[in-house]
């Protein structure tokens, strides 16, 4: 799926990430931890092709990211669902249309899409908020809407950047359950979070690898948790 080999990323003369090697096999579940500013978001951006490594090799779906053109990156992103902490929406479109945007962008059949959308809205518990506009949603509802949008194309990989950052404990547990459920469906999941309690809460339900970014390097951190 996504494979990093001695990847480094520099910006403005300074190296932000160095010597990172990782393989995200199908159906795996990873947590990525580290203090704020450690480079978790940068790492995820590398994984979905928003940034290009300055050294090493990063392969997305068996292709080196440097050899993928702009359209190729767009196509790859249809196979990678991304959820950001500050989930961005098109505020002038209702929630349902925002969630269905990836379908429109990829030119999928509208009738079939309607059925998928309805099912997904139900699954994330937003059926009653389908016609609301994003600014009217609470933090938890926004996170669930972002997750629904990331999933509508049934991607192979879901990358979530601090998905529980703006929600209370109950909502973070609910989101975590959704992500675990997705993993059980065979999706590859990576969650970047600084919230160690979230990782502990997930432990009984899923077999996850816990990685930590420390001193610009990627380390296996499972023993600490």
């Amino acid at each position: 799926m996504i494979e990093l080999e001695n990847v480094a990323y520099s910006y403005g003369g300074g190296e932000l990430l160095t010597d990172m090697s990782l393989r995200l096999p199908p159906g795996s579940f990873h947590f990525l931890t580290g203090p704020s500013g450690a480079g978790k978001t940068t790492f995820l951006k590398l994984c979905y092709g928003a940034l290009v490594p300055t050294a090493g090799h990063l392969r997305m779906f068996d292709k080196d990211v440097r050899e993928i053109d702009r359209d190729g990156i767009a196509m790859a992103r249809r196979r990678i669902g991304v959820v950001h902490q500050d989930c961005q929406f098109l505020d002038h479109l209702p929630v349902a249309e925002n969630i269905a945007l990836p379908l429109a962008v990829s030119g999928q059949d509208k009738l079939e899409a309607q059925a998928d959308l309805k099912e997904l809205l139900n699954w994330v518990g937003l059926s009653s908020r389908a016609n609301a506009y994003p600014p009217e949603l609470s933090g938890g509802e926004r996170q669930r809407a972002a997750l629904a949008r990331a999933l509508i194309l049934s991607p192979d990989v879901v990358l979530a950047d601090e998905p529980t950052g703006n929600v209370d404990w109950d909502m973070s547990q609910r989101l975590l359950r959704l992500l675990v459920e997705l993993n059980k469906m065979g999706k590859t999941i990576m969650i970047a979070t600084h919230d160690l309690s979230l990782i502990r809460a997930a432990k009984p339900h899923v077999q996850a690898r816990v990685l930590r970014i420390s001193n610009r390097r990627l380390q296996l951190a499972g023993a600490d948790l």
Binding site: A50, R70, D71, A74, M75, A76, R77, R78, V82, H84, Q88, F89, L90, L101, P102, V105, S106, R149, L153
Partner: peptide, 16 residues
């Protein structure tokens, strides 16, 4: 800019 960012994130091509 935000619209464009969201569209790129969800896999919209430049042509779209």
């Amino acid at each position: 800019a935000q619209v464009i960012q969201v569209l790129r994130l969800i896999g919209a091509t430049d042509a779209y």
